[in-house]
């Protein structure tokens, strides 16, 4: 343990990945940690793949990029995008994956089909701890499709993948989101956190099974507070 945590947030343009990275970064800053985030914005708005790197540490951080094999947590806002980024995950890392696939337009045109279940099954087979979250259900619960990003960050926090408390993320939301959307986002955060905690408590097995995945290596719930983050914001 180098006193640092690395996160990869992967998904599709339009899913709110940049804001998700910002929330994690703000929570880290409030906890007195160093933080660097990096994203490739270029074609993000056009439904392309988007990956955000977030690195937090007690010590100064060098490269803004998470090296392959060093991510403590992989947040997949879309199952196929999570699979695409698997090489970033360290052995023993955790995956928080949205169950809902976003079919690329090319899948419709190239006479091929794209099934999220297959991707979730792959995630389940990789030996990492997998927490599958029904992002659509969470959005429906909160009443807006716009809160997927915050719900999934909540799920990650609930599953103990981030090392930050839900309260620290609440503060980050208050500092980052426009006034009239704060309450809705905080509801989404808690809905996600509950889902993540439940999935974590059942050791990921039921969540994986429901997605048709054979989840192994799913007993560890020790990623919480690897940094010993009792620092007051």
């Amino acid at each position: 343990m180098s006193g640092a945590m690395n996160f990869i947030i992967a998904g599709v343009g339009g899913q709110g990945i940049v804001l998700a990275a910002k929330l994690v970064a703000r929570a880290a800053m409030a906890a007195g940690l160093q933080v660097r985030t990096s994203e490739t914005i270029g074609m993000a708005q056009r439904g392309g793949s988007v990956v955000s790197h977030v690195r937090v540490s007690k010590l100064p951080i060098a490269s803004p990029l998470v090296p392959p094999g060093r991510a403590d947590a992989l947040l997949g806002f879309e199952p196929g995008e999570a699979v695409r980024c698997l090489s970033y995950l360290r052995p023993g890392g955790i995956i928080i994956a949205n169950a809902h696939p976003v079919a690329p337009v090319s899948a419709a045109l190239n006479q091929q089909s794209y099934r999220g279940e297959e991707m979730l099954a792959r995630l389940g087979q990789c030996g990492a701890r997998l927490v599958v979250v029904d992002g659509d259900a969470l959005c429906a619960e909160v009443g807006s499709p716009q809160v997927l990003n915050v719900a999934l960050i909540g799920a990650a926090a609930g599953a103990g993948a981030l090392g930050f408390s839900v309260e620290q993320l609440e503060d980050a939301i208050r500092a980052s989101v426009r006034e009239k959307f704060i309450a809705m986002n905080i509801r989404a955060l808690h809905a996600g956190a509950n889902a993540g905690a439940n999935a974590g408590a059942s050791a990921g097995a039921s969540a994986g099974a429901s997605a048709g995945a054979n989840v192994s290596g799913s007993t560890s719930v020790t990623t919480v507070n690897q940094l010993g983050l009792q620092v007051a914001p």
Binding site: G47, R84, P104, S106
Partner: peptide, 14 residues
């Protein structure tokens, strides 16, 4: 992290 079946993810161009 080995897979029982090789993974092929769709390209997702903009």
């Amino acid at each position: 992290l080995e897979f029982t079946v090789p993974v092929k993810v769709f390209p997702r161009p903009p």
